[in-house]
Structure formats: structure tokens, C-alpha cells
Write a protein that binds this DNA or RNA. Structure first.
Lengths: 192, 192
DNA sequence: TTGAATTGAGAACGAACGTTCTCTATATTG
DNA sequence: CAATATAGAGAACGTTCGTTCTCAATTCAA
């Protein structure tokens, strides 16, 4: 078993445990057992728990962005691409393991004491907002639309997590339709 | 110093510390020192840390709901009342101590392992949604408007917390205007 | 095959936590 | 005033955590 394989098994296992129970609730020994590695090997691959946390955040970011992008690319029109964001959320909220956005959660848990966690959460959200911004621009919408849709998506995530239901995705999607159509009317008027 | 005074000083101090550093990052001894009580007195007033956490959540709920209601009542029209929600958020986000919604944060930190924390967060959000629902109904809007505005408000909270900026309140407010006006047009058409 | 390096299993360490206990000093009450 | 209850200060306890260490087993090189 090569080092990269071990590393990714550790990070994948940590991701699942941290998501299910919270980061602080999962000790190194529990992670060691679940990932089927020795403690020695664990510390050989990662110098500390916080470095595992950062690796988990990076994994989450890549996986989330890739999943979103796949759903968006499958949509036809620029307007449908914007709405595909909320279809992705609906799919995500329906998973049994869904327990809210991992970045919001890690920010809430560690952000106050760990500048690197806070910073990474900020960058993740910023990257999402830029992504939405690109989609909105491609749809010909004015710049104010992107933050509005981003806020809707954020709100759907926390609402679904706390309520334990996925209906927020559909509600946010219908709100997004209204906002998009209003913004496109404005955008077209402004461009004319 | 009577017991209720001591209790509320403990809860108030705990609220501040938990908000600033996270619940798990604040030990009982730190709380004892900050609240200027003896450890004996602390455990005389509260049987455990988790009972203090629940008392803090209750305090947060009351204070948040009262602050929101005051802002809403100051608004004139039903439409302005709905928008006052976002003015309240703007004011809140601007406070130095703002570090996100305490219920989202405690849910993220403890919700997975503590059913009572998860349940209390759920009830707090539910009560907010009902409050928005009452305002929306008074404005003559169809029932789908309330969840849309609630989701916007939730999203503004996490966005402002993670980005460390209060601009999400204004962005959410402008989105709310669009949603409210669209819903009122629909509502009037439906009622006619 | 023999010697050196690496591994796994888990004991051990030091710190921190929530909680309880001890002891002394101060109030309270008859 | 004397006897008793109560308070504060903080030591102590048992656990858990992140991290390191020990040591026997195994792998690999020559």
C-alpha cells in the first residue's frame, strides 16, 4: 500500500467521520481504527490533526466543486445552468449523510480559534460566489444577481441541515427563478 | 447576590465566551473566572456544562426574537415589516461581536452528538419561519413567500459570518424586495 | 542468512477537560 | 457567644485527547 493510497484513505475516512460527528468529537484513535492504519503511520503521513482537517477541507472543496460543475454543465441554457445549482443542492440534501455544509460547520466549530480553517472556509465560499458570478454573467444578468443566488444557496444549506429536510432546495429554486427573471428583465432593459 | 442574579450573570458571560470562541473551546474554569463566581457556585446553579449551554441557547433565542420584533414593529406597512427583517440583520452583522448565528454554530458544533442542542436549533429556526409566515400573511402574500425570505435570511447570516462582512444583509434585502413584489402581484392576482 | 531498517500494536505521556472534594474562613442563628 | 451551616479557593480525580515512545515482528539488502 503506497503512501498516496494510505493518505487518501485517511482523508476520506476522516471526511466521513468529521461530517457525521463533528471534528472535535472524533479523536485520532477513532480515525486510526476506522481507516485501518497504525497510529505511527497516521503521524507519518500527517504531522498533526489540524493538517488532516485541512486536507479534509481541500477534499471537500474539490469534490463539491466538481459535483456542482457536472450538474451545471448538464444543463442547456444559461438560465438552466443557474437553476442547476439548486438541483445539485436538492440531490445533495437527499443523501443520508447530509449534515450541512462542511465549511459552515468547520467554520462554526473551529473558525474562531483557527485562522487557517476560517480562511479556507472564506475562500471556499468566495470561489462559489465567483462561479455563480460567471454563470450569471454568461446569462447576461446584472452583477447583483450572483450574490443574491449565492445567499439563497447558503440559506438552503443551513435550513436543510437544521430542519433535517430537503425541501429548502425546491423553495430556494423557485425563489431563484423569480430573481433570475427579474434580473434578466433589468439586464436586457439596461443593455438596450 | 441572589441566585437569579448569579445565574443570569453566568449565562450572559457564557453567551459571550461561547460566541467568541466556540462552546467546546471554553472550559468551565475559564467561565468561572470570567463570571467571577466560584466553581462551587457554578455547579450549585447549573448541574452541568450542557445545562449552561441550553440556558445560553434560551437566552439567545429570547434576545434575538425580541430584537427582531422591535425592529419589525417600528416599520409602517406590512411590506416594510417584511423588509425590516433584513434591516435587523444589517444592524446585527455590524456588531463587533458578530460571529454568525449562534444556533447554526451550536448545531454545527454539537448537533451531531447532542439531540437536545439539535432539537433546540430546529425549534428556533422553526419559530423564525413561523414569525416570517405571520408577517407574510399579514401582507397578503401567498404561503410560498415566507420560506423564501427565511432562506434568504439564513443565507445572509452564514455569508456575513464567513466573509466577515455585513454586505450580505443589503444584498439579501434587495433580493427580498424582488421576491415580495413578485409574490404580492401573484397573491393579488390569485385573490382577484 | 544475517544485519539493518521499517512497521504495527499499543503503552505511555503531558495537558486539558468536566466534575467533585477538602479545607478554611465567613455568615447565620438560637 | 457558641454552634452550625454556607461560601470561596483551588486541589484532586477520572477521563479523554493529541502526540510520542517502546518493543517485538517483519521486511529488505547484501
Amino acid at each position: 500500500m503506497t503512501s498516496p493510497e494510505i493518505r487518501s484513505r485517511i482523508v476520506e475516512t476522516a471526511d466521513g467521520l468529521y461530517n457525521a460527528k463533528g471534528i472535535q468529537a472524533v479523536g485520532m484513535d477513532e480515525l486510526r481504527a476506522a481507516a485501518h492504519v497504525s497510529l505511527k503511520r497516521l503521524y507519518q503521513e500527517f504531522p498533526s490533526k489540524s493538517s488532516i482537517v485541512m486536507a479534509v477541507l481541500e477534499r471537500r472543496h474539490r469534490s463539491w466543486a466538481a459535483g456542482l460543475d457536472a450538474q451545471v454543465r448538464a444543463a442547456g441554457s444559461p438560465r438552466a445552468r443557474l437553476l442547476a445549482i439548486f438541483d445539485y443542492l436538492a440531490h445533495w440534501f437527499g443523501e443520508d449523510s447530509f449534515r450541512g455544509c462542511g465549511f459552515i460547520n468547520s467554520f462554526a466549530e473551529l473558525g474562531a480559534m483557527s485562522p487557517e480553517v476560517a480562511e479556507y472556509a472564506r475562500k471556499h465560499k468566495e470561489s462559489f460566489q465567483e462561479y455563480v458570478g460567471d454563470l450569471a454573467e454568461a446569462a447576461g444578468a446584472p452583477p447583483y444577481l450572483a450574490p443574491q443566488l449565492s445567499i439563497l444557496a447558503e440559506g438552503a444549506q443551513t435550513t436543510a441541515a437544521i430542519a433535517g429536510s430537503s425541501e429548502a432546495a425546491g423553495q430556494a429554486r423557485r425563489a431563484a427563478e423569480v430573481l433570475i427573471d427579474a434580473a434578466l428583465r433589468e439586464g436586457i432593459r439596461g443593455a438596450a
